[in-house]
Design a protein around this nucleic acid. Structure first.
Length: 496
RNA sequence: GCGCCGUUAGCUCAAUUGGCAGAGCAAGUGACUCUUAAUCACUAGGUUGUAGGUUCGAUUCCUACACGGCGCACCA
């Protein structure tokens, strides 16, 4: 921002000085609010009489002066309400202060609620208190109501500025506030659900000496005093399962994971992950947990009226299709049975790029993504993944080439990933070593051997079901939001 | 990382073939005691993303860069 104030900002600073010159403090300490805008609207008297008096507070978002009267609108989190100022009612001095007010100022207004001639519920101001002067013009558009729909003109359209200056976006767009209210309700509903099942919410390290639990490139940082390289976690998984070993039985964590990858519509370098683990459960139990959790999440989001119409109807139980069967059916051949050359040729045919550089499991995974995953629209569990793709999952009963793992897909995107957790330390060591070989061969996303985790598992880990759900993606799905940036309050951006 | 598109007043957008950079809202002054995208009159507001180049003349054409959007790649 330029140091030179533009003419609008200069005018506002002049008003600020004029207010101070009158002995009025332009930045108040508090205001005793008795009603939100929505609560005040609900007090509307039937006829033309004046109803109860209220004290409302919020931001001035519209202003229509008429000489000796003024109409304005005040917005708070609950909505907006019209204000009516009359000189003969307020008195000369109080009315004169209104000349120093601007759209964007935070004010408190006290007075009775009444209906105007046109029927709009309005607060007739007995007095106004300036709570904070706005020195920078907010891009507040004008609103009109056409056929019951609010149409906004102007306002802040630039999506970069909306993300960068989220405070302005939120101040100007009630629907942006509603989306984040919905997100908050969703997280709250998830906590309520898991707490109700006896889960404990825990916190595990963000700074980790070894990273694991997912296939991703980490961020690195340094601890000066320990002179040690640390990684920002890419998943919570391995620490939460250590807690299962310790007898915590049911634990969950909602927190940020960090992955050092490109930024696009569905990826932000830090994102919110829910993981929950339940001792003595397997992946079938976790499927029903996920169904119940999603229903409650959808319900929570639907409780926000501005967002409700976009929330899809969820009808559990969701269909369950096998990973291998669905891939083979889409391919018209048995992919797992194919020789390596044949498999790579098939992958190339369906458009998988740089097939030569991929490991065999990666080729299968790419084929599955292209043929099956991207085409799933309504919520569907894909179950039983190849063991090579799932180094932390238990082998499938009766088929050790596969694991007891499921992913939930909707609109072509992954919503949940879960498995019967591998609790055999000998098998786990072998899996880690296989990963370490991939890593040595140049796979930057393969994990290493986590000896401490193996030590934990050697003490004895109960059979456990575990689930990971990306909260940002879930919010996107439930609110039909196309860009992850729009569901994260402060997404990662290049500096201005 | 690659391709395409974009960047003009605080906000939303114009500007013909390369020919004086414009409008609405917001702002200022004035009028107006039930308006609601209030209305009316007047006024002010610009280093056209940055740096170069071509040209008598560049918002416009060219090059590079910055930032962004979309697509691709990457990303269970």
């Amino acid at each position: 921002m330029s140091d030179d104030l533009n003419f609008v900002e200069r005018a506002r600073r002049e008003k600020l000085a004029a207010i101070e010159a009158q002995g009025v403090t332009p930045f108040a300490y508090s205001f005793e609010r008795t009603h939100t805008a929505a609560e005040a609207l609900a007090l509307a008297p039937a006829g033309s009489d004046e109803g109860a008096s209220v004290r409302v507070a919020g931001r001035l978002v519209a202003w229509r002066g008429h000489g000796k009267t003024i109409f304005a609108h005040l917005a708070d989190l609950s909505g907006r309400i019209q204000l009516y100022f009359r000189r003969d009612h307020m008195g000369e001095a109080a009315f004169a202060l209104l000349e120093q007010l601007d759209i964007g100022d935070l004010v408190g207004v006290a007075g009775p609620v009444f209906r105007t001639r046109t029927g709009e519920i309005t607060v007739k101001a007995d007095e106004v208190t300036l709570l904070a002067k706005s020195l920078r013009p907010l891009p507040l558009g004008k609103e009109e109501v056409v056929d019951g729909q609010t149409v906004r003109h102007g306002a802040l359209e630039d999506s970069e500025q909306r993300s960068r200056q989220r405070y302005a976006d939120l101040a100007v767009h009630p629907e942006a506030r509603a989306l984040f209210v919905a997100r908050s309700r969703l997280v709250s509903a998830i906590r309520t659900y898991l707490d109700g099942l006896g889960y404990l919410e825990v916190e595990t390290p963000v700074l980790q000496p070894l990273y694991g639990g997912a296939a991703a490139k980490p961020f690195t940082t340094t601890h000066n005093a320990l002179d040690m390289q640390l990684y920002l976690r890419i998943a919570d998984e391995l620490y939460l399962k250590r807690l299962i070993v310790g007898g915590m039985e049911r634990v969950y964590e909602i927190g940020h994971d960090f992955r050092n990858e490109g930024i696009d519509r569905t990826h932000n370098p830090e994102f919110t992950m829910l993981e929950f683990y339940e001792a003595y459960a397997d992946y079938t139990t976790m499927m029903s947990r996920v169904e119940a959790l999603l229903l409650r999440a959808a319900e929570a989001v639907r409780s926000v009226p501005e967002v409700a119409p976009r929330v899809p109807e969820l009808k559990p139980p969701f269909p369950r299709i096998s990973w291998a069967d669905s891939l083979n059916r889409a391919l018209g051949a048995d992919a797992m049975a194919m020789g390596d050359a044949e498999l790579r040729e098939a992958a190339r045919r369906i458009g998988v790029e740089r097939v030569e550089s991929l490991s065999r499991p990666k080729v299968l995974d790419e084929m599955f993504q292209a043929l099956v995953e991207s085409k799933i629209d309504s919520p569907t569990f894909v179950i039983d993944y190849p063991v090579e793709l799932s180094p932390l999952a238990k082998p499938k009963r009766g088929n050790p080439a596969m694991t007891e793992r499921f992913e939930l897909f909707a609109r072509g995107k992954e919503l949940a990933n879960a498995f019967s957790e591998l609790n055999d330390p000998i098998d786990q060591r072998a899996r880690f070593e296989a990963q370490a070989r991939l890593r040595a061969a140049g796979d930057e996303e393969a994990s290493g051997v986590d000896e401490d985790y193996l030590r934990a598992m050697e003490y004895g880990m109960p059979p456990t079901g575990g689930v990971g759900i990306g909260i940002d993606r879930l919010v996107m799905y439930l609110t039909e939001t196309a860009n992850i940036r729009d569901v994260i309050l402060f997404p990662t951006l290049r500096p201005e």
